[in-house]
Design a protein around this nucleic acid. Structure first.
Lengths: 355, 355
DNA sequence: CTGTTAGCGCGTTCAA
DNA sequence: TTGAACGCGCTAACAG
């Protein structure tokens, strides 16, 4: 193990020069005679010099400012999980003189999103974490950032034609494909499949769900033919309306035993089923670990939840920005999140704090 | 946001005392007049003082030594994953003047284990990470450590009657229970179940598997009656022998369509099935993401792998030791690892495939 | 009891 | 082209 610790002074002594000179060759900031450079390089080649990151951070007087363009979230929901991950990262990089600020908007509200983007453009920042919402507005922002050389990255959803340093999120198609595989393992002749969808398919924020849906149907196309499928369109808010629709649906489709949702609100189905124990589904799969969803999972009305590590997305978003801006490391352009599978039996052991 | 950064000097100025005094009250090392203490405390209560970790580490001249009592691993196997996690943590704490060393032994070899324990007892160390093997020998070690007040923790497996600061590992019973739930979802009348076991049930290192087995059978007892089950005892090494046994078994049990293993070697079944495409199993579940197992998963002969984050166990083991020894933080006595569910469709997105 | 001081390892002047 | 000196925020030893 070449784990022995060397300091710049050590190297200076070993090379017969002063600390200042060592620092100069380490950072290639010139003004060093070829002779000195060689002396220093020779000892650098022999030892495994690892600079003390703490001393670097302490001595460095530069400070950085990151801002996060993020939908406002309510405690427990998806975006608040993202924010928690961001906060955790902010703590870790605080002593590197990195400050992290939020610039929030109302999810799926274009005016609000535009205002937030404007806000970001006005500020002088060193890096931007973007959870993008509307494509066109996003491109206006990223063009601006590109122009002034400010790095940014996307989490959750990737916008084509922009130039982020990185995209962090799940492979939605694949997670849909997996959902299908999981659900259809218990399929039997005669079982019917229901998609519980929301009407607002056009909302730009719902592209994610469409990808999942594509993945799901890709699996179906590959593995099943003559499967009876139904779409049930629910409202985002109006639970009374939803109840009616579900009553109606299940009354006429007693064989609908497999169900899938592609948004975060599988709990609305779960709760309905809890009220109607006479309806026996063999499988119901949904996305995201909202407390309401988790409750259904534990209760047994929902069989699988697919997690996409919102917290880790936020955390790695900030970390990646820092790695790029502060530590000047190379960043790989895509960080796919794991596709986590949660059931009643492992949900209690799930956590989202990791690197 | 109370994110503004205060230094000890700031506090000193605000409290009208000197930096030394502030440091004294911060660390409660006495020799401070009640009056001064109050002045300082008052400003501490108002601001959200977060000391600069880097400065602390830099100024602290103490150094620490952690040792890891761990089975030797081959590249890619379970224990090498643990070691990778440990190495990753070692890197992170290096600048805190924490050194991490290994003391390895041959898994399930009692003499080797004893020698390693002796070795650890001889050394002067500040913390020990133990992947325990033999109960009695372990207790001799921990008694010794208890006597000299050296903290230690267990990963992977918990030894009763010892006093570790923490246990880090999976809830094996629950992971067995989950395996059963997952596998039996596709059960149908007439399907038979096979357990692929290893003979050495008595080996202390195999208690883990027994727990998984217990969990598995608990599920069966709760949810199924009149299920036909078989045990197939395989050898750890002798693949020719295993082939014979499997030939024999599958010839006489065409309805054995569901299979479970509780050790890390489900690949031996997977490979066999790959050679015998005429045998159609509906489900095969195993543990741990050895490259061989992952290959079977992708190939399709194994349906589920259950992961227990060996790397994270090693990583948090070292981190926890440091949090206790170096940062004097409170440690919660149990860190259960998540029970990860991997399938062909999400394995490529899984992180802890680790390098 | 309390203020002062000397580092920790590194980056950054500033003279020489 | 180089070395020496200072300071980042904190701890610990020392002198008052």
């Amino acid at each position: 193990m070449d784990t022995k610790k060397f300091t710049i002074k050590d190297i200076a002594r070993m090379a017969g020069v002063s600390a200042g000179t060592v620092d100069r060759v380490l950072h290639q900031r010139g003004d060093v005679s070829e002779r000195s450079r060689l002396c220093v390089q020779r000892v650098l080649d022999e030892i495994n010099y690892q600079p003390n990151r703490f001393a670097i951070a302490l001595a460095g007087k530069k400070s950085y400012r990151m801002v996060c363009l993020l939908p406002k979230g309510k405690e427990g929901d998806y975006w608040s999980s993202v924010a928690h991950g961001i906060d955790r990262a902010a703590k870790e990089v605080r002593d590197y003189n990195v400050s992290v600020e939020y610039c929030t908007f109302v999810h799926a509200d274009e005016a609000s999103y535009q205002a937030a983007c404007q806000q970001v453009m006005k500020e002088k920042v060193d890096g931007v974490l973007i959870a993008p919402n509307f494509r066109q507005t996003t491109l206006e922002l990223t063009n601006h950032l590109d122009a002034q050389g400010t790095p940014y990255l996307f989490i959750d959803f990737n916008i084509q034609d922009a130039h982020p340093i990185c995209y962090i999120g799940q492979d939605s198609r694949q997670s849909g494909y997996l959902a299908a595989k999981l659900l259809m393992r218990v399929y039997h002749e005669g079982d019917e499949l229901v998609f519980f969808l929301t009407g607002s398919k056009e909302s730009p924020a719902e592209i994610q769900m469409q990808r999942r849906f594509e993945g799901f149907t890709t699996y179906l196309a590959e593995h099943l033919n003559r499967l009876m499928m139904h779409d049930v369109i629910l409202d985002k808010e109006d639970q009374d309306y939803n109840k009616q629709v579900l009553d109606e649906f299940f009354m006429h489709h007693p064989d609908a035993r497999l169900g899938a949702t592609f948004n975060s609100r599988v709990y609305s189905i779960g709760r309905y089923l809890e009220q109607h124990p006479e309806i026996k589904m063999k499988g119901l799969v949904g996305y995201d670990l909202l407390p309401e969803n988790v409750a259904c999972l534990k209760q047994g009305t929902v069989d699988f939840l697919i997690g996409q590590r919102p917290g880790l997305q936020g955390f790695s978003g900030i970390m990646t920005l820092c790695n790029h801006v502060v530590f000047k490391l190379d960043i790989s352009p895509i960080h796919y999140m794991p596709i986590d599978l949660l059931m009643k039996e492992n949900i209690d052991y799930y956590f989202e704090k990791e690197r």
